[in-house]
């Protein structure tokens, strides 16, 4: 009887442990912003979904601007149109790089200029992974990528 119970326990414990300490499935890496020239700014980052289920970036907030909206630059060979996005999918077991010329998080109504060498707080909210707070480094106005690579879980 006891042997049977301990067998069940042995089966249950790893399951419980697995349920409790699931590794963070969404990882944000290489987040950076460009120093602003006007009243708008842009943040770029890499979203990694280590999980086995799809997730989705649904909301972005920051205290440094009135509004944040993801945009995608669509180049049809003649002009680049900016399409606002309501959500960005983070597919299971994959990585999406948000970079200049593609998808970016556009800040409108900046409360002050984004200065190179400073950092800004940005909060991402995913459908499943929930809230992820970031400290984003501001790079020079003409930067095409982050100077320091790194990730925050």
């Amino acid at each position: 009887m006891i042997a049977r119970l301990s067998l069940i326990a042995m089966l249950l414990i790893p399951m419980a442990a697995w349920a409790q300490s699931a590794p963070p499935t969404i990882e944000i890496a290489d987040a950076w912003a460009r120093a602003s020239v006007g009243s708008t700014g842009a943040v770029y980052l890499t979203i990694r979904n280590h999980g086995t289920t799809d997730d989705r970036l649904e909301t972005v907030t920051t205290p440094v601007a009135d509004q944040v909206q993801p945009h995608i630059d669509v180049d049809d060979g003649k002009v680049t149109r900016m399409m606002p996005l309501n959500a960005i999918d983070a597919k299971a077991n994959s990585e999406e790089v948000l970079k200049p010329g593609g998808i970016h998080l556009m800040f409108t109504g900046l409360h002050g200029p984004l200065k190179s060498g400073t950092t800004i707080p940005v909060t991402l909210i995913f459908a499943h992974a929930g809230k992820i707070d970031l400290i984003v480094a501001v790079e020079k106005a003409g930067a095409m990528g982050p100077t320091q690579q790194g990730s925050s879980p």
Binding site: T40, E139, K140, A143, T147
Partner: peptide
């Protein structure tokens, strides 16, 4: 006022990490 900026490259110049003349402040 509304403003913004973007970067482009001409010819084979390697992408540059930043433009010094436009630093903040």
């Amino acid at each position: 006022p509304v403003g913004g900026s973007f970067v482009f490259g001409l010819g084979d110049a390697a992408p540059e990490p930043g433009l010094d003349g436009l630093t903040a402040g």
